[in-house]
């Protein structure tokens, strides 16, 4: 089945990103297609590669990047929500005159339409948030 996932909270403060990760991993292992993981609200903070948790803690951002790489996931960060919260890719940083970008590997920044489009294309859309 074709499943879309919406992640509405950032890493660590809420369990939402962990739950979404475990759900996505289980779905992939069962042979389902994860059409897209869309990061919205504070969920965009899952996409900063500047995250550096203590060594004995999980690295939520890297974990998404690795899963994304393994399964070629489409992990989309909402541009409007990202701009509010300072998540930028190289193009956006240049456009805004910022000294550097911080987006982690495997994530891409795009519009909110990608969420609606996932709702249209997927058999199911599951939201993880607070």
């Amino acid at each position: 089945m074709k499943i879309g996932v919406l992640v509405s909270e950032g890493p660590y403060t809420h369990q939402a990103s962990d739950s979404a990760y475990n759900f996505v991993k289980a779905a992939l292992e069962k042979g389902h297609e994860i059409y897209r993981v869309f990061f919205y609200h504070d969920g965009v903070n899952n996409a900063t590669r500047f995250t550096e948790p203590p060594r004995d803690d999980r690295n939520i951002v890297n974990r998404w990047s690795e899963l994304g790489k393994q399964y070629n996931l489409d992990m989309v960060v909402c541009i409007a929500a990202a701009q509010r919260r300072g998540i930028m890719d190289e193009n956006e940083a240049k456009r805004q005159g910022k000294s550097g970008d911080n987006i982690a590997e495997g994530f891409r920044i795009s519009g909110l339409g990608q969420l609606v489009e996932a709702g249209i294309q997927c058999d199911r859309l599951v939201t993880f948030g607070d």
Binding site: Y40, H41, A81, G111, L112, G113, L115, V116, E117
Partner: peptide, 19 residues
Amino acid sequence: TIYALEGLEVVLISAAFEQ
């Protein structure tokens, strides 16, 4: 919290998809 505002932004975008 920001949920109501950002939620409204999604609703407005959804209008373009004729759902």
